[in-house]
Design a protein around this nucleic acid. Structure first.
Lengths: 315, 315
DNA sequence: CAAAATCGTGTAATTTTATTTCAGAGTTAG
DNA sequence: CTAACTCTGAAATAAAATTACACGATTTTG
């Protein structure tokens, strides 16, 4: 009884965190009926959050009071408190703890998991960036006569492509290379006043590292968005270090791309602000041109579509 | 039909997430009593998850049925469902914007703004997706003999490129076209059993719309990730509607790309789960091959770097 | 402008859900 | 074998949530 009271007190605080692992921990101390409830809950955590006490009791083949007792044993004051705690736990778990258990049956769950992780990556990135490096990078890019972008492999290649557009729109001479050979070739034509921006999640893409080393040897400012402590990080002048937690499930795409893209957006916007007049004029021209060609003629309907929507320059 | 889809979407969405932004969105449509409830909830989301209906009614100074009606207006079937949804949302929200970091300098503020908006776009997307369409799309893609990806303009082109990699890694014959001419050419070689996935933020990229129409006429399943009510949305069989709030500043890249990428990741993961064995084997081979060539040889140092990090397949 | 229809709201009834009480069954210890 | 104890569910109770309904305010319509 004394132990009971004590655990209850402790539970009070712990109840807000991780019901799932708590369930596993206290499981041996549960009575038979309670254990049956635990089993049913464990079998479908998600569903448990939507059950009423009578439903759960019926499924567990125990009485309703036993369910209430179970909740108390779990450190919750009531059944509904238990449900709320469980729901909270599951949400966190979806993204971080049980990352490879993706509910294939429910597309909503899947989307939820993926997107939560994506947003998490961006947040993680925001938490760890060194703003002084961002400032330096923006200055370097804004002052560059020419910018080369290097990335290899699918994810980074796409990000490089996107980065090209971001900078290109500002009227900066920029080129993106995803091929190792071309990267090295381009790198050897760089000179002081030029910059290289290399993106690699692993930081171990050999061609990229080599190209960066070449670029550096020719006096270009080399900037890398990558993991710290990797060959690429060692090779570059300015290293924007990003470490994103990866899930173990290989079928889930890495969320680091979101962080990289967010960084590129930040840099591009920073450069745009720095160049202001010039960049704005470039952007204006790009938009104007696109509005006239290669686009469906805006339907003059009653549709109150804002002008923005007819702009395809952001496609 | 439009009304049909809309109501279906709304009903389906109920089970999904982000009550908070939905609250803000539907707020103007609420009645006076409901709005009072909304105000009380908004004032203390956290606390609302622990209130009973009578408590909430008393605090809002409305009757209990009004609270129930409020929950229905929010797309929940019952008060308790509302509470669970709210609890989930809060947890998600915490994960999305829990960066307590305060930035003093300009670069930091910039990064903060950009990244918050990026995360916001993903959340917005999560809030508005119709999960049944996601399911249908995953099924269509998984069953396809061949998949064509169309996107034009910078942002979408990069996303298409990324999507190609995601699907390609699963062992699916996939091709990405960013050129209008090529899109049309490829589209006319499609046949029943093939699919097209088109991405466009504006939904008005003429070549893409035309290519989709051609593909459709040849019996391919056409899927579009775009804004609802646009030419592209009209042209495709399955429309995954995404409307992302755009900022007025033209120097800031559109955040819709994050949403599109997240959707592609969701679809790709869904397809991977569906194909499971086959996809896993493909992924394994891709990784194995990449681990042997084109990569820096892992330094056999004391560095406790997990194996994952030496994998460049996700670059 | 008045009658009708509609909408929003609360009261009261009803149903559903959760908790407490209590007694019986099973278990262990002396 | 019995006393003390634990576990459990039935039943009672309390609480919570929903439905049905009616009243008053507003808008619509002839």
């Amino acid at each position: 009884m004394a132990a009971d009271r004590k655990s209850l007190t402790k539970a009070k605080r712990a109840a807000t965190i991780d019901i799932v692992s708590r369930l596993q921990r206290v499981e041996p101390q549960l009575s038979q009926a309670e254990r049956r409830v635990a089993a049913v809950v464990a079998e479908d955590f998600e569903g448990a959050t939507r059950m009423t006490i009578s439903e759960l009791a019926a499924r567990s083949d125990v009485s309703q009071p036993s369910v209430t007792r179970f909740c108390r044993s779990m450190g919750c004051r009531s059944f509904s408190e238990f449900k709320i705690s469980l729901a909270t736990t599951l949400t966190v778990a979806a993204a971080y703890l049980k990352s490879d258990r993706v509910f294939e049956d429910d597309a909503g769950q899947l989307a939820h998991t993926i997107m939560l992780r994506a947003a998490g990556a961006i947040r993680e990135c925001l938490d760890q960036i060194d703003t002084s490096l961002i400032t330096r990078t923006i200055e370097a890019l804004a002052a560059s006569h020419r910018i080369d972008l290097y990335g290899q492999g699918g994810g980074s290649a796409a990000m490089i492509e996107d980065a090209k557009l971001r900078l290109f729109r500002l009227g900066i001479p920029v080129a993106a290379y995803t091929d190792g050979q071309q990267q090295r070739m381009s790198a050897s034509t760089l000179q002081p006043g030029d910059s290289v921006l290399a993106i690699s999640n692993s930081g171990r893409s050999k061609p990229v590292v080599e190209a960066v080393e070449i670029a550096r040897s020719f006096g270009a400012v080399t900037i890398a968005i990558t993991r710290p402590g990797t060959p690429l990080a060692d090779a570059a002048d300015i290293v924007i270090a990003v470490t994103i937690t990866e899930g173990p499930d290989i079928t889930v795409p890495t969320p680091s791309r979101y962080a990289h893209m967010a960084l590129v957006d930040t840099l591009a916007t920073g450069v745009a602000k720095k160049l202001d007049g010039r960049a704005r004029e470039s952007l204006r021209r790009v938009r104007y041109t696109l509005a006239r060609i290669g686009t469906a003629i805006p339907t003059p309907s009653t549709d109150p579509t804002p002008v923005m929507l007819q702009d395809t320059s952001e496609d």
